[in-house]
Design a binder for these strands. Sequence first.
DNA 1: ACAATTCTGTTATATTATAACCTAAACTTT
DNA 2: AAAGTTTAGGTTATAATATAACAGAATTGT
Lengths: 159, 159
Amino acid sequence: MTQNVYKQHDHHSCVDEALTRARRLCEQNGQRLTPVRQRVLEMVWANHKPVGAYDLLPKLAEEGFNSAPPTVYRALDFLLDLGLIHRISSLNAFIGCNHPGEDHPSCFFVCRECGKAQELDASLMRSLATKAEQDLGLKVEQQMTELMGLCPACQKEAS
Amino acid sequence: MTQNVYKQHDHHSCVDEALTRARRLCEQNGQRLTPVRQRVLEMVWANHKPVGAYDLLPKLAEEGFNSAPPTVYRALDFLLDLGLIHRISSLNAFIGCNHPGEDHPSCFFVCRECGKAQELDASLMRSLATKAEQDLGLKVEQQMTELMGLCPACQKEAS
DNA sequence: ACAATTCTGTTATATTATAACCTAAACTTT
DNA sequence: AAAGTTTAGGTTATAATATAACAGAATTGT
């Protein structure tokens, strides 16, 4: 079951599991999880907030990695291709995927206060795609949904 | 009823209606549909393809308008605020809205071949938001969905 | 007519992303 | 292990998208 990022959880194991999944997925696909790629993935998973490409550059630099834009974009593109991360278009930012490997629509809620993003169940998205295909004869290949608003904690603070 | 942009239609009346709705909406809200704003809206409606801000600049220049980025972004922001256009985040582009005034999620299909975008019925989006609010206690304030794929005509050409 | 507000002009710059070309590392075949 | 092939990374430059900040003009309200 997809966890709730707005509740307390063992975040260390969160990241661990993401890395384990990543390693397995790379192996299955004959891809290499190189040091830059792995560190970028870990950084994306640092908290549950979508992270911008240019936020990663200085962090990579600190660790002695090369830090020009192409480095980070290549790593991000690699992770996107494998489905290990999603891109949040409305924020120009990237977030870890909870169930890579399974082909699925990108569907997130982002809290406008704390910035944390929760991946949502995408079954309604699939229905939407099916409906569009049936009603209008479209062929849907990709889809993304982004919701914005307040998470439970930030609603309380606002009141 | 929302029309189907992938079928032949009287596009002139398409634009006309959009302008009429815009004028009415501005009046209702005490806003001014100035020349730049109106031309930008017309240009966004020129065809059913999402248009980038920087595509508009030279067109405005041709017509003697000032053409620096802030000019077009201001007009676009104005139109967005009134709900007369939507932003397609995954394309950094803008498209006319079929039913401005009614507050509704942005929900589009974009054909990757011909580039035309069709606004879709957003009721399933609303269900998704409601579900997220009920299940996770979120407060959804905005939402957008973008589907990509092939429209009926472009599917035929591909075969 | 005056003040207040809204809109536009202008310059500069921030932010996000990619092109192009070259070097290095890793796999592959013998 | 050597040679060839593929894949990944380094580097420089630049493209594409978006906003800040401030001044001046037009419009609105009184």
